[in-house]
Design a protein around this nucleic acid. Structure first.
Lengths: 243, 243
DNA sequence: CGAGTGATTGACGCAGATCAAGCGAAGTGG
DNA sequence: CCACTTCGCTTGATCTGCGTCAATCACTCG
C-alpha cells in the first residue's frame, strides 16, 4: 500500500516548500510506484544508466564514489526527502553509487516520463532545478570543510549539519538525541580522514562535552559550542521542494 | 556591440549541445545585455541577492567561499560557457562569491524573467537543470580529490581537468600549451593545501616532466602520465548545454 | 629607487596517516 | 551451548606529508 503523495508525512515538515493540492496530485500521477530496499543494499551504481529516479521517503543511505586507487569518498548522507538519480536522469549515467544504510522506502519515478513531466509542469521543473541548486550548495560547503578545516572542526561541522537536518525532519528521538546508524568508517570517508583519526576526534568531542555518538545515535550536549567549532550558522535549514 | 547568440563562437564547440535556430533565438530574447568586467573584480558576493544571471562568454574567473576562520575555499574555476548565479536565481541568494581573474565578458539575463522563461521554454528549463547536474558532478569529483588524494595526485588531477576543459574550448595557444592566469595561491585554495606545498608539488610535476606552469601558461609534457597520476579518465569532456 | 606582488626554497614541527593489537557484541555452525 | 569468526570500535606507537615560518629573488609600477 504505497503512500499517497497527498498524505505524505514528509510534506508536513516546514523544511519543504508548500505546494497546492493540484500540484501534489500531479506529482502523484508522475509517481510510478514505491520501492523498499533492505539495509546494506546498493541500489544505484556508478556508471549505471538507471531508468528510474527516486525520492527517499524513509530510511537513511549514502552516496559515494570509488576512486581508481580503491579509496572511497562519501559524497553525502541521504535523508528522507532527498531526490536521487538526477544525474542519470539528465546526463545519462550516474557518476556515483548510492546505497541504503538502513532499510529505505523510495518513491519511484520513471525516467521515460521525466521530460514529459518537466514540460507539462514547469513549476515542478523549477523545483527540480532548485533541488539541484541546493545540492550544489551543500557540496560547496562540504568542499570548503574538507579543504579548509582540521579534523576536529570538520567533524563538528558534519555532526551539526546532520543534526540540524534530522531535527528539521522531526527525526529526533528525544532531547537532542537522534538516530545515526552509520559506521565511523562512513563518516571518515565523508570527511577524507582515516578511521583511526576520526575515532580519536569523536572521543575528543565527547570529552569536551559537545556531542557523543555511539550505538547508532548522536546525543548533542552543546549545540552552540559544536556549531561554533564547526563554523556552522545555526539557522533554520534551507527550505527545499519535495518531489 | 553585443554578440548575437546565433553568432556566438562558443556555440560551435563540440563541448556544447546543439540546439535549433529557433531555440537560440529564444535565448537571445531572454538575454538582457552584455557586461564587461575588469580583471580582479568580484561581481557576485556571498549573501548577495543578485537580480541577474550570467553566462561567461570570455575570460576566466573563480568562485569561492570565505569561511568564518578567514580561510578561502575556491569552489571552482570559471571558464567560458559557464552559467553563473543559479543559486541566487533560485534560492534567493548566493552561497559563494564570484570574481573575474582576467577581464571577462558576460552575457546577462534578468532574474525577473527567469521563471517566465523557464515556463515558456521547457527544453531550456531542462538544459538549466542539466547544467546544475553537471556542476554537481564536478563538485563531487573535487570533493573526492580533496578527500582521497595526496598533494601530488590532487594537483595532477586539477591540472588535467583544467587542461581538458580548455582544450575542449579551443583555448590552447599552441602545442598542448594553454593560458592559465591564476596565481598559485588560487590553486592552493582550490585544493585545500598551502601555497608553499603547492609550489613544491608543482616543482615536482615539472621535474617529472609532466607539466610546467609558469608565466600564466601551462605546458603539458605528458598528458597520459599526468592524467594517470591524477586519476582522470581522458575522454571527451562532458557535453553540456550553453545558455 | 623603494614598495608591492608572486614565485621559490630551506628549516622545523605537528596533525593526522599507518600499523598493530585488543575488545565486546553478534552471528553461525557443529 | 560453546568454539570460532566477523565486524565495528578503541587505543597506543611510530612515521611522514604537509603546514607554518622565514628569507630571498624576480618583476612591475608609481
Amino acid at each position: 500500500m504505497p503512500t499517497a503523495c497527498l498524505a505524505c508525512p514528509l510534506r508536513r515538515r516546514d523544511i519543504f516548500t508548500k505546494i497546492s493540492r493540484e500540484e501534489i496530485e500531479a506529482i502523484q500521477r508522475f509517481k510510478a510506484g514505491e520501492l523498499k530496499i533492505e539495509a546494506g543494499t546498493p541500489f544505484l551504481m556508478e556508471g549505471s544508466n538507471s531508468p528510474q529516479l527516486f525520492t527517499a521517503l524513509s530510511g537513511l543511505g549514502l552516496r559515494y564514489k570509488t576512486l581508481e586507487n580503491g579509496r572511497r569518498q562519501v559524497i553525502n548522507f541521504l535523508f528522507p526527502g532527498d531526490f536521487i538519480g538526477l544525474q542519470a536522469g539528465l546526463m545519462g549515467e550516474m557518476q556515483h553509487s548510492v546505497e541504503a544504510t538502513t532499510a529505505m522506502t523510495l518513491c519511484v519515478f520513471d525516467r521515460s516520463e521525466f521530460f514529459r513531466f518537466f514540460r507539462s509542469h514547469p513549476s515542478r521543473a523549477f523545483d527540480i532545478t532548485w533541488l539541484a541548486a541546493v545540492e550544489e550548495h551543500f557540496l560547496g560547503e562540504a568542499l570548503a570543510s574538507l579543504g579548509q578545516r582540521n579534523g576536529l572542526e570538520r567533524t563538528a561541522w558534519a555532526l551539526t549539519r546532520i543534526y540540524l537536518r534530522l531535527e528539521a525532519l522531526g527525526m529526533l528521538d528525544s532531547d537532542k538525541r537522534c538516530p545515526l546508524p552509520y559506521r565511523q568508517q562512513d563518516l571518515a570517508d565523508a570527511l577524507g580522514q582515516s578511521l583511526v583519526h576520526t575515532n580519536k576526534v569523536l572521543a575528543k568531542l565527547r570529552d569536551r562535552q559537545l556531542v557523543s555518538w555511539s550505538d547508532g545515535a548522536v546525543q548533542i550536549h552543546d549545540l552552540k559550542g559544536l556549531a561554533d567549532l564547526g563554523g556552522v550558522e545555526i539557522e533554520s535549514e534551507i527550505v527545499r521542494p519535495l518531489m
